[in-house]
Nucleic acid binder design. Sequence first.
DNA 1: CCTTCTTTCCTAGGGCTTCTAGGAAAGAAG
DNA 2: CTTCTTTCCTAGAAGCCCTAGGAAAGAAGG
Lengths: 194, 194
Amino acid sequence: MVRAGLTAAKVTAAAAEMADEAGLDSVTVSALARRLGVKDASLYSHVKNLRDLRVRIGLLGSEEMTDRIGAAVAGRAGKDALVAFADAYRGYALGHPGRYAATQMRFEPEEVAGSVGFRRSIELTYGMLRAYDLAEPDLTDAGRLLRSTFHGYIHLELGGGFGHSRDVGESWARSLDALHRTLENWPARETGSK
Amino acid sequence: MVRAGLTAAKVTAAAAEMADEAGLDSVTVSALARRLGVKDASLYSHVKNLRDLRVRIGLLGSEEMTDRIGAAVAGRAGKDALVAFADAYRGYALGHPGRYAATQMRFEPEEVAGSVGFRRSIELTYGMLRAYDLAEPDLTDAGRLLRSTFHGYIHLELGGGFGHSRDVGESWARSLDALHRTLENWPARETGSK
DNA sequence: CCTTCTTTCCTAGGGCTTCTAGGAAAGAAG
DNA sequence: CTTCTTTCCTAGAAGCCCTAGGAAAGAAGG
């Protein structure tokens, strides 16, 4: 019997490739076993179940993604940092759609407990926002707006939700421009203005 | 043999309820058959397959949602219209998370061909943006930014992506305020400003 | 009323999936 | 060379999607 020499990390890496190629939903235990030249049951030595497999893809993706974003924003501030953050975010998501989708699962607290990706993601966001000189709760509100916009854009773009007429990259750049101005002129509390 | 008296519409309605209660992924042919007191195979007289069932939920959702949004924005303009649109959007999505998720599927052209929901959704968006006096391609860019933000916000909120500290409704209201200002002061082309 | 047609629902079954139990053998550790 | 751990296996239960072919309920027509 020639062994395949699998480990949890190798299994996860193969699953992540599959996810990017064919979509997260098509990552199944049996399809992955076929790809690895192994029987279904053998994978259960490395991974608890299907859910666990997908969670591992998500944790891997969040770490890779925050690595890239961290490198992109290093030494930048203000609009430079915003654009670098956003482009690294979008670039990773478009290049690794399956991994990205896995980062958006609804995780249980114990599933993300030992992972650094998600914590670092929050730190990076707040670090980038520092230049805009906001105080809580505006900081939280602005962070939520940014995350929502980034995620929503990518989700719609990956889902084919945008028509083909106008280049999405250009729309994206213009939206970042608009967001930068929004952050610079963040509305004061209790604005009565219309 | 006592008949259940099913039709495609009744099957879809039951499926939509299931989706809202337990998530779109848990809408399966066999689970739906159990709920309706019928054998799996019987549902295939009303629905082509699982995909078709979920598409029907999405089309139903898009029509219900645009009905609500249309009623909300009627007679309003400017920021009033924006807030009415956004609140109706968020209200429907939070109240019907399964239906909403189904509206975000990747549809094939022939699947949405006979449906009015998606077309009306575009019309409503452009109608609401009319007050901001934008010309193409700014109109498209602004529309994409709005859709992304709305969808991203709801997706993160439904996915438990926001912490519990700050009230999401308040963040939402502040973000709408910020978006309104963004639309009012939409950046001119080729801004060199930082 | 009685025949015919259409639609709804059924049984039976194939094929794919997840996952468990229990065992064999490869490779590491003593 | 023996012992232990880990990897991988076979076997099988249970659930899912979907098709084929048939029965019966209800509608439509004579």
